[in-house]
Design a protein around this nucleic acid. Structure first.
Lengths: 152, 152
DNA sequence: AGCAATTAAATTGCATACAATCTAATTTTA
DNA sequence: TAAAATTAGATTGTATGCAATTTAATTGCT
């Protein structure tokens, strides 16, 4: 009987870390949506732009799709069409690497660089609106980083 | 200069709680995939089954798509096709409510109920394989539940 | 009763995710 | 060096998510 109840408890939705992650991720993404709409970006597109803006200050070995995928934990099946859309938007260029024709070299256009100014207020604004203390967010972020390191 | 650096820091990918949630959610879902494949379920389908199994013990007012959506924070645009697939798999029935023809009454088939036995070991197994202490998972889950309550 | 407002699902359209496969370029190795 | 193995992206196919719209049924209101 005890066994059954324990098993029962393990299957309860509210006891599942995975569901909380899944629900929180979608909820937070949804909170971003209105802000990102003013930038003309979806959430995954915004993440890609964050990385490309970072790369301006700290250039990676190769600004390739592979490097981007390693940073965001996404594969070319997701990134290729997404990057094509950013290219269509005039934010990103997708050239071929000279030293290796297989490789794409990703680069920001002037417009892509400019957009950073508008994006700068997004995290700040959401942080405030959420009403969650900054230190709580920071702590949670660190705990999730640890979890991610273990799971991946 | 300080202003610029702070803004810079706020845009750093690793400083974004949202990215950690997004990455962790996908990573954990990926960890579930092989186990769920043996059940013939995707991860969202598994979540729906969790709710329906729960409803066997604690029936809701109405076992409707709406009630399911409130539990999982998903809308009919996602749930309708997903439920049709579960119906095709022979796990779920989608009848019409007698008292209100707009409403779908969701019910488990015999096979749907049986599947619970096989599913029972999934959370346990993953908990062990992850190597993350159970109490750490529990704490994180609670913190995320609080965050979810604030954001939603 | 009769019609407007509301509501539950379904549908449509677009953008991810991701496994699996394919293609082309580069490396390795016999 | 020439074929085999590897690698970077692209493509294909399936299943979400979700906003926006549509459809059908029910409620409210006069």
């Amino acid at each position: 009987m005890k066994q059954v109840d324990e098993q029962e408890a393990l299957l309860q939705l509210d006891n599942q870390l995975c569901f909380m992650l899944y629900a929180c991720s979608r909820a937070v993404t949804k909170a971003y949506r209105p802000k990102l709409e003013t930038l003309g970006l979806t959430y995954p597109q915004y993440l890609v732009m964050l990385v490309l803006w970072e790369w301006q200050r700290q250039p990676p070995e190769q600004a390739s799709v592979k490097a981007l995928g390693e940073r965001l934990l996404l594969d070319s099946g997701t990134l290729t069409p997404l990057l094509k859309r950013l290219e269509q938007l005039g934010l990103v260029e997708r050239r071929r690497a000279v030293h290796d024709e297989r490789e794409r070299v990703l680069a920001l256009t002037e417009a892509g660089m400019q957009l950073k100014q508008q994006a700068a207020s997004v995290p700040q604004t959401l942080l405030c609106e959420s009403g969650v203390p900054a230190e709580e967010i920071s702590r949670l972020r660190q705990e999730l980083a640890q979890l991610l390191a273990r799971v991946c």
